[in-house]
Write a protein that binds this DNA or RNA. Structure first.
Length: 263
DNA sequence: CTGGGGACGGGGCCC
DNA sequence: TGGGCCCCGTCCCCA
C-alpha cells in the first residue's frame, strides 16, 4: 500500500511559487474521472514494451561506467544557434502550445536597434504573460556576438534566463501549471507529469525490474532501484570510497560525517 | 543512521 | 516551434 499517496506534506518546506497569484487558472489538459482508458493505453506502452529487459538491461553497467565514460557528445552540449530576434514576433499565445495565433507576417527589415526593440514590444513580446522586459542585450544586435549574451530570454516570474525561447516557454509552464488532474485537482507543468501522477490514482506500474520484477510507476524510480542490484553503486564518497545508489544517500552520508575508512 | 520506494520537477534532445 | 521523452535530481517518508 502506498505510503504517501496524495498526502504529501502539502505546504512543506520546499519552496514553491505562489501559484494562486498567477492569472492563468484555466486548465488546458486534464484527466477526467473516469479516465479515457483508450487514450491512456494509447499513450502508455504496455509493460512488455517498457520492461527493462528490453530497453534497460545495460543501465546498471552504463551507470557503472558513467564516471569514466563520456555519454554525451560535447557537440550536443553546445547551443545549436543563437535565437533570432525575428522569432519574437509571434508571442501572443499563453505558453501552452495550444491556441497559438497564426504567425505574424514577417516584419520588414529592421534598420536600427531602437526600432528593433520597439518593434518587438509592439509585436507582442511584452504581451507574453511570462516574459519579462525585453532584455537589454537584445536591444543591440552587436550583443549577439558576445557569448555571455546568449541567455537572452527572461522569465518574469522568477527572472531566470534562457537561451532559447522554447526553453523559457517550457519553464513558464512550471509557474502556470496548465495540466490539472481531474481527480484531485493537482496541477502540473507538463502533460506527461500529469500522466505519471494519474498512475498514483490508478496504481498502474508499467516499469518493472528485470532482476526482481518489482514494478514501478516511474522510470526514474526504476533506475534508482536498479542501482540496488549493483554491488558498486553510482555515487561514491571521495573520502571513504563507499558507494551509494543515490546522490541523496551520498549527501546524507557526508553530512552525517564520513568515518573516513573504506568499507 | 542507512537503504530504499514514491512522487515529482526541470533542462535538454529529438522528431 | 512545440510536444514527447529521457535523464538527472530532489524531497519526503518509512523500514
Amino acid at each position: 500500500m502506498p505510503r504517501s499517496f496524495l498526502v504529501r506534506k502539502s505546504a512543506c518546506s520546499r519552496l514553491r511559487p505562489n501559484y494562486s497569484e498567477l492569472h492563468d487558472s484555466s486548465p488546458e489538459f486534464t484527466f477526467q474521472q473516469p479516465y479515457d482508458q483508450a487514450h491512456l493505453l494509447a499513450a502508455i506502452p504496455p509493460p512488455e514494451v517498457l520492461n527493462p529487459t528490453a530497453s534497460l538491461p545495460t543501465l546498471i553497467w552504463d551507470s557503472l561506467l558513467a564516471p569514466q565514460a563520456q555519454p554525451i557528445g560535447w557537440a550536443s552540449l553546445l547551443p545549436r544557434e543563437i535565437p533570432k530576434v525575428v522569432e519574437l514576433t509571434s508571442l501572443s499565445d499563453e505558453d501552452s502550445g495550444k491556441g497559438s495565433q497564426p504567425p505574424s507576417p514577417p516584419s520588414p527589415a529592421l534598420s536600427s536597434s531602437s526600432t528593433l526593440a520597439s518593434s518587438l514590444e509592439a509585436d507582442g513580446y511584452a504581451a507574453f504573460p511570462g516574459l519579462g522586459p525585453l532584455p537589454k542585450q537584445r536591444s543591440g544586435l552587436s550583443g549577439a556576438k558576445d557569448p555571455r549574451s546568449r541567455k537572452a530570454f527572461n522569465c518574469k516570474y522568477c527572472n531566470k534566463e534562457y537561451v532559447r525561447l522554447g526553453a523559457l516557454k517550457m519553464h513558464i509552464r512550471s509557474h502556470t501549471l496548465p495540466c490539472v488532474c481531474g481527480t484531485c485537482g493537482k496541477a502540473f507543468s507538463r502533460p506527461w507529469l500529469l500522466q505519471g501522477h494519474v498512475r498514483t490514482h490508478t496504481g498502474e506500474k508499467p516499469f518493472s525490474c528485470s532482476h526482481c520484477n518489482h514494478a514501478f510507476a516511474n522510470r526514474s524510480n526504476l533506475r534508482a532501484h536498479l542501482q540496488t542490484h549493483s554491488d558498486v553503486k553510482k555515487y561514491q564518497c571521495k573520502t571513504c570510497s563507499r558507494t551509494f545508489s543515490r546522490m541523496s544517500l551520498l549527501h546524507k552520508h557526508q553530512e552525517s560525517g564520513c568515518s573516513g575508512g573504506p568499507r
